[in-house]
Structure formats: structure tokens, C-alpha cells
């Protein structure tokens, strides 16, 4: 049982490693064009391997940060904490997080209207308005 689980985990790790390798290849290509250098295959493989290992550290830190806050779900706050070592990195991640939060806010507003319309918590008049709005948001 445990052996089969290990094997499956190993297969998943190999697939993930391949996915990371592919993305690293794309990113290195961008840097190649940018800086007018070439990356050897081995150097791309090395960066991919380093990134894959770094994920292990990231994951364990994130899990501990979440647990420290008595959560089982990792949130944006934990990721910001992960990027604390370099101030420019922290700034970049915080900015990205704010961008995401503002775009999520709009979606949440729509969802809120949907769910409250579905629950039928509003007065009949309000509910009718919510339903028409709901249809509008589906059209968009």
C-alpha cells in the first residue's frame, strides 16, 4: 500500500519537474533575448532543478506560516511573509497581491448578489432586482 503510494508520488514529482523545466525554458528564452546571451541545456536543467527544490522550502514555510496563524489554508499573507527577505521582492509581491485583491473584489460583489438572490433572503421587490442583475452579470 505504502509502496504504491510512494511510486505514485514519485510519478507526480516527475511530471511536476517536467512542467517546471518547460516553464523555466520559456523564461530563460526571454532572458536570452533580453540580455543577448545563450543558455546551455544543462544550465536550464540546473535552474529547473534548483526551482523544484526551492518549491519544497516554499511549501514547508507556507504551511508553517499558516499553521502559526492557526489556519489550514495558505493565504496571500503567508506568501508575503515568504518574500520578506528582499525589500524589492516584498514590494513587488505586495503590489501583485493588491492587484489581485481589487480584481477579486469586483467578482465577489457579483457572487454576493447571486448567493443572496438564491437564498431568497431579500424582500420580494429586492429579490426581483437582484435576479435581473444576476442575469446581467451572466451576460457579461
Amino acid at each position: 500500500m505504502a509502496a504504491a503510494g510512494d511510486e505514485q508520488r514519485e510519478m507526480l514529482a516527475q511530471r511536476l519537474k517536467a512542467a517546471v523545466h518547460y516553464t523555466v525554458g520559456c523564461l530563460c528564452q526571454e532572458v536570452e533575448e533580453d540580455k543577448d546571451v545563450q543558455f546551455s541545456k544543462q544550465s536550464i536543467a540546473a535552474i529547473a532543478e534548483i526551482t523544484f527544490r526551492q518549491c519544497e522550502i516554499f511549501a514547508k514555510d507556507l504551511e508553517m506560516f499558516a499553521r502559526h496563524a492557526k489556519r489550514t489554508t495558505v493565504t496571500a499573507e503567508d506568501v508575503k511573509l515568504l518574500a520578506r527577505r528582499s525589500s524589492s521582492l516584498l514590494k513587488y509581491i505586495t503590489q501583485k497581491s493588491e492587484e489581485l485583491a481589487s480584481s477579486n473584489l469586483e467578482q465577489k460583489e457579483k457572487k454576493k448578489k447571486k448567493s443572496s438572490a438564491a437564498k431568497g433572503e431579500r424582500s420580494p421587490g429586492d429579490q426581483e432586482a437582484a435576479v435581473t442583475e444576476n442575469e446581467d452579470s451572466n451576460m457579461a
Binding site: 523544484f52 511549501a59 514547508k60 507556507l62 499553521r67 489550514t72 489554508t73
Partner: peptide
């Protein structure tokens, strides 16, 4: 998947923003 591969506790999840 990369993160969950390395979590010690199977219950740990990652929200979409994270």
C-alpha cells in the same frame, strides 16, 4: 500540486490568491 506535494499535513490547502 507542487506545494501540496511538499506539505507535511494533508489537510493544508492553498487559496486561489495565494
Amino acid at each position: 500540486r507542487l506545494l501540496r506535494l511538499n506539505f507535511r499535513d494533508g489537510r493544508t490547502r492553498v487559496n486561489a490568491e495565494a
